Simulated assay, not measured.
Amino acid sequence: MEGIVFEKLNSLGALLEPLNPFKVAVLTNTTVRDIWLEEVLDSISEYEVHPIIIPDGEKYKDLETARYVWEKLIKIGFTRKSLLIGLGGGVITDIAGFVASTYMRGTLLGLIPTTLLAQVDAAIGGKTGINFHGKNMIGTFYLPNFVLIDIMTLSTLPMVEVLNGLAEVVKYAILDREVYEILTRISSPQEAIKSEELIRKSVEVKVRVVEEDLRESGKRRILNLGHTVGHAIEKLSGYKIKHGFAVSVGLVVASKLGERLYGFDSGKVYELLKKFGLPINLPFEPSKVLEAMKLDKKAWYGKIVFIIPVKIGEVVIEEVPESLVLEVLREVRE
């Protein structure tokens, strides 16, 4: 997948040259604005640039925020040949992608992910979305013109955001043996965010899958490993539990199912999650989690489908009997 570059923020101007945008809008939140916006604006000062600032938080990833951004773009005379840049974490990159894909049926789009979760997951692969009666229930597939990854932006992250992203990296470690080997050598979250090799390899795993199946009609579904339970936990918490923490518990459930069905060594997953201090216990009643899972968009034809590890580097996509799911949920709840 072209357009993903590992460079410093001050290289942004070079990425804009071939696009020759009429106008540029930079969408970010109040937190990232105070840390990185000035450096981004300085690197593209020769363009007409309009910052658009929204509040920080998952609860603002909604239709009202999208409407606010659309209206801002109209007011500044934004055209299809203008560039919308999403500067921030997964909420920002998701909203920026959604707005860019729908405004005038598609504008130029650039993403600058500043969290680990966004760098290895949310900004990669062309998925966009807003929350509407559930996680990412309204969205599109829309590939950005570029994704600029500067791992130095991770140096200002609070530890909770580092851990939030590490859960997705553990997911890649289950899907890919090379990522697993790298992650087993890393001893702390602080070491992980300094490892460009780890982040690059995680991105490569996702890109490899997405290039085979952009619209999630088949193989791309393996990237939902841990998300069947994860999205249910997020929804039940009113999105107060962070995505990565919810996925972490989802990885435990998937690993336990793999152990029951295929003899997968779930201890390998437990070991990684515990090393980084990620949650491993279900925070809600199993029956409530099961019901929430049935309403998730990943439940095709109303049936609960899991991504189940067979061994490190190999997973299967499989419908699992509710009785077994409930049994494992109860085990993880204890």
Rank of each mutant, 00 (worst) to 15 (best):
V91H: 01
D94A: 01
I95G: 03
I95A: 04
A96G: 00
A96H: 00
G97C: 08
F98L: 06
A100H: 00
A100P: 07
T102N: 15
T102E: 01
Y103N: 04
Y103A: 04
R105M: 01
R105H: 09
R105A: 03
G106P: 12
T107V: 12
L109N: 04
L109A: 07
G110T: 10
G110W: 08
G110I: 13
I112M: 12
P113T: 06
P113G: 09
L116F: 06
Q119G: 03
Q119N: 05
V120P: 12
D121Y: 09
A123F: 04
I124P: 15
G126E: 09
G126T: 12
K127H: 10
K127W: 10
K127Y: 10
I130W: 05
N131Q: 08
F132T: 13
H133F: 14
H133W: 11
M137T: 15
M137N: 15
T140Y: 02
T140S: 12
Y142F: 15
L143D: 08
N145I: 04
V147W: 03
L148S: 01
D150T: 01
M152N: 15
T153N: 06
S155T: 11
T156S: 13
T156I: 01
L157K: 02
V160N: 08
E161L: 04
V162N: 00
L163C: 04
N164G: 01
L166G: 08
A167H: 04
E168Y: 00
V170P: 00
A173R: 06
A173K: 05
D176C: 08
R177V: 14
R177G: 02
E178H: 14
E178S: 15
V179K: 04
Y180W: 12
L183C: 07
T184K: 14
T184Q: 11
T184E: 13
R185Q: 12
S187G: 14
P189D: 03
Q190H: 11
Q190L: 14
Q190P: 00
Q190T: 09
Q190R: 13
E191C: 01
E191Q: 14
I193W: 06
K194F: 10
S195W: 02
S195G: 01
